[in-house]
């Protein structure tokens, strides 16, 4: 046998290695895995940046508030909610510079005769973080070819006898869009802001029960529908682990607790912000 024939035999042997159809799918899976991970990392980075900005905001709040009142303000009435709670747009921060634009509606809450000063300060702090980040992006752009767009609006998602829940939706668009949610819950009796931690404080076992309920719902939804993906820490090594008490939440009109996660927090970006309703059979307030 000639050397060339030997090589051809070898080549034939090689190209005849059967390639299963699964090879293509596995290739795709690997690509998808890397992309999702990358997206999450980008968001983590921008969240960290916002965190730093937030710390800076705390120091300059007084100045900011004064400056901003000159910038722009629009007073606008929102339909009165119930007899006692009222939410109006206190002011709107609007700006446009080249590829940069911002429109941030800042609401103000008043509940009966309660002093809502503290809640309104939190709401304003939150908005000021967004404004500050926006201004930082504008001043940091020396070449003038950057993009940054931030839009923030609010809606009252629940108003019952006990609580008023005000949801702030913010969309930031840089290279890709990110959506974030912040819900302010106000105790109507005191006019004070309450967190999930507060309402779980005297409910032993609730934290675990909510955690389990969310995990079960994630798994059930994924089993039923292939297009849904959630990250569960015990399976993916990253993602939802347990309820910390810092989560966004509100009570729906049936009085059920609804937990709201930000985009990327427990699911890949295409899922957006996701919500889980915890049945009353699990926890009741």
């Amino acid at each position: 046998m000639e050397g060339k024939d030997r090589l051809n035999d070898l080549k034939e042997e090689y190209v005849n290695i059967p390639v299963p159809a699964a090879a293509y799918d596995r290739m795709k899976q690997g690509i998808k895995q890397a992309k999702e991970e990358k997206r999450r990392r980008i968001i983590m980075r921008s969240l960290k940046r916002t965190g730093a900005a937030a710390a800076a905001v705390l120091l300059t709040i007084g100045v900011m508030a004064n400056l901003s009142s000159v910038t722009a303000s629009a007073m606008e009435d929102i339909p009165v909610l119930g007899a006692i709670a009222k939410v109006v747009t206190f002011r709107t921060f609007e700006d446009k510079k080249g590829n940069y634009d911002a429109k941030i509606d800042i609401p103000k809450v008043s509940i009966g005769n309660n002093d809502s000063g503290q809640v309104n300060r939190s709401i304003e702090d939150y908005a000021n973080q967004l404004i500050k980040e926006y201004e930082k992006q504008v001043t940091a752009d020396f070449t003038g070819d950057g993009h940054y767009s931030v839009t923030s609006s609010y809606e009252v998602i629940a108003d019952n006898e006990t609580y008023l829940s005000l949801r702030i939706n913010t969309t930031v668009i840089m290279a890709s869009g990110a959506e974030s949610v912040k819900i302010f819950n106000i105790d109507k009796k005191t006019g004070k802001e309450i967190s999930l931690k507060d309402i779980l404080a005297d409910k032993p076992g609730y934290q675990e029960a909510i955690t389990e309920s969310i995990k079960t719902q994630m798994k059930d939804q994924m089993a039923k529908d292939d297009s849904l993906t959630y990250f569960v820490k015990e399976i993916d090594g990253d993602g939802f682990d347990r309820i910390t008490g810092e989560e966004n939440f509100y009570f729906n009109k049936n009085g059920e607790l609804v937990i709201v996660f930000d985009e990327y927090e427990v699911a890949p970006g295409y899922m957006g912000s996701v919500e889980f309703t915890i049945p009353k059979s699990t926890v009741e307030f």
Binding site: P20, A22, A23, R26, M27, K28, Q29, G30, Q33, K35
Partner: peptide, 18 residues
């Protein structure tokens, strides 16, 4: 063997993109 080769393919695609 097929099953290991498939694992390698997926892992490689992941590393390339990452």
């Amino acid at each position: 063997n097929e099953s290991d080769a498939l694992d390698i393919v997926q892992e490689s695609a992941y590393k390339v993109l990452k």
